[in-house]
């Protein structure tokens, strides 16, 4: 398959990328290429120009500062999965990154490209919502930070403006008594999430002192299931309590769940509590309660 023709520009710096974006309206940013190139090959996307930001040094790297972990937009899924910092302090993110696509995809695909593409069946957005991540973008008006809750707005649409570049994603580092986990029901062909569930729970005095739980693959974008979060809070995280809380996920999803030929909306909705339960239980185990 051959994409339509386009112009190619390589950005040497973030400033260079912004200049190029301004000069080429309608251009698409290219990082690892694992979201954009497949669409272009099938001619589902045909931008007039592509701006390659894949070599901008300031967009790379994972660093910890205080209670937050900053992840450069060009960090690959493989780097996320292998990061000791993330495994320790944002386990769900490392876990999810290790489940994206396959090894070769993980070696090229980037977190910045992934969130900007905002596929509803993608793994990372679900985790970022659950972890209360913040996405930093730079545009002509300067830098701004958007919470993951607000960032994902629809099927492959985000709060990002056309002339903004995602530069980094910050996730809070978990503290003692916190744990996070991601569980996935992968499509057997595409490997995207039929259902992805991410949970972050905090435990104090043997009770859940706070929870953030998100689902992907069901709704137009990764979304929290707030009834579940509310029901978990204040409870001891035993199997019965988790199961009872997880059951509320169905109501949160409402009637907007999308199905396809592989898994219907009804089935996905029915399975949501199962995956929420598994994610919460795994997160609770990591938080220190078995």
């Amino acid at each position: 398959m051959y994409s339509a023709d386009f112009d190619y520009h390589r950005a040497r710096s973030l400033a260079d990328a912004q200049r190029l974006l301004a000069a080429h309206p309608g251009a698409k940013l290219l990082a690892g290429g694992h979201s954009l190139i497949p669409l272009m090959k099938l001619r589902l996307a045909a931008p007039s120009a592509v701006i390659d930001i894949g070599r901008i040094p300031e967009l790379r790297g994972i660093s910890r500062s205080g209670d937050s972990i900053r992840i450069g937009a060009l960090t690959t899924h493989a780097e996320l999965a292998a990061s000791a910092d993330l495994q320790k302090s944002a386990a769900a993110l490392a876990e999810a990154a290790g489940l994206v696509g396959d090894p070769a995809v993980r070696s090229r695909g980037t977190i910045g490209g992934n969130v900007a593409h905002a596929d509803p069946a993608s793994d990372l957005p679900t985790v970022l919502v659950a972890l209360d991540a913040r996405i930093t973008a730079v545009g002509p008006k300067g830098e701004r930070t958007i919470s993951a809750d607000d960032f994902f707005t629809g099927i492959m649409t985000t709060a990002l403006a056309d002339d903004e570049v995602v530069t980094a994603i910050a996730v809070p580092a978990s503290v003692r008594g916190q744990g996070s986990a991601y569980v996935k029901f992968a499509h057997p062909a595409s490997r995207y999430a039929v259902i992805g569930a991410a949970a972050l729970v905090s435990i104090a005095n043997n009770r859940c002192s706070g929870a953030r739980v998100a689902l992907g693959g069901l709704l137009p974008h990764a979304s929290r299931v707030r009834s579940v979060e509310k029901a978990l809070t204040g409870k001891p995280l035993d199997a019965a309590a988790i199961e009872a809380a997880a059951a509320l996920a169905q109501a949160d999803l409402g009637s907007n769940v999308a199905g396809d030929i592989y898994a219907s909306a009804e089935y996905r909705t029915a399975m949501a509590p199962v995956y929420v339960k598994r994610a919460v239980a795994a997160a609770a185990a990591r938080a220190g309660l078995a």
Binding site: H187, P188, A189, S190, I261, Y262
Partner: peptide, 22 residues
């Protein structure tokens, strides 16, 4: 895993390896 699926109009809904699972 495997099934070629057509809709009523004859559209092949499992038209690539992203949909048809081997």
């Amino acid at each position: 895993w495997e099934q070629a699926v057509y809709d009523a109009n004859g559209q092949l809904l499992t038209g690539s390896l992203a949909d048809y699972a081997i």
